[in-house]
Design a protein around this nucleic acid. Structure first.
Lengths: 135, 135
DNA sequence: CATAAAAACGAGAATTATTCGCAAAAATAA
DNA sequence: TTATTTTTGCGAATAATTCTCGTTTTTATG
């Protein structure tokens, strides 16, 4: 009588792809990655499960790139770099000066900060060296 | 023979609304604000001009809230608070610890950072006091 | 001012990422 | 196994944004 969540092949596969990926994939990217092994998989199922994972705290949406939402199984807030050339989203491990601003925001403005989304824009290392004209 | 940009009534009005607003309005919000004074204004014109302003460096898109892009005439990167309750986007004036990370990102990762988008999520002061249950 | 060229507008169609509805299939419980 | 619940796949629906195109407005120039 209780609501138990099933572990369907598809759901597990979608989560596996998301967890294994470092590219912060979109629903479409996950779908394309799985389609060969799950020919009957539908894009709607990918979206449905991404929503489910977010509700469960197993995933977050990290950025909307050119109209496509990107997802991450690493749910702790952390900064990203969006390359203005190749449009890749990569993690940027940096000293975390942002969460120290939570208290400051509360003290100065009286708001309660619970999370953050920080996306740097620029050129990733690869594009920077491959395309000197972008410097 | 040269490409000069016209100053139409609509274009100026859209920019005026955006500059005067502190609520980081969406295209639809700008449209609604102007519709009474410009009954013939079309939503497409608002979108067209928002794109134009971004190209000209007169505006930026600051966040996508529930599927609606929000715009700001203040183009220098600065942090925002998105209230999880009322969905308002407000400016948070805080010590700028973020742009100091540009150099760090370049040193550690070899990327060239040019801008950033930082959105805190939480409760704005108003929702926080009006709704103790949200604490 | 008159007129021609360029730019911008309004209306509505098109695009597209995402969501929804529903019947069938799979997973779970008994 | 059988009944119940959850999930899937498919396709239709939704909705923000973009595009097309004929008309209007603005600007440049004689």
């Amino acid at each position: 009588m209780e609501a138990r969540h099933n572990k369907s092949k598809q759901r597990q596969a979608i989560l596996d792809v998301l967890c294994a990926s470092k590219e912060h994939p979109s629903a479409e990217m996950i779908f394309s990655a799985l389609k060969p092994d799950y020919p009957s998989l539908s894009l709607g199922t990918v979206y449905r499960n991404l929503s489910f994972f977010q509700q469960q705290g197993l995933a977050v949406s990290v950025a909307n790139v050119d109209g496509n939402m990107r997802y991450d199984a690493c749910t702790a807030p952390h900064p990203h770099l969006l390359c203005r050339n190749c449009r890749r989203v990569t993690d940027l491990v940096l000293p975390d000066t942002v969460s120290s601003l939570y208290d400051e925001a509360e003290r100065l403005w009286g708001c309660k900060v619970e999370s953050y989304s920080l996306t740097f824009t620029g050129l990733c290392p690869r594009c920077r060296e491959e395309e000197p004209s972008f410097l």
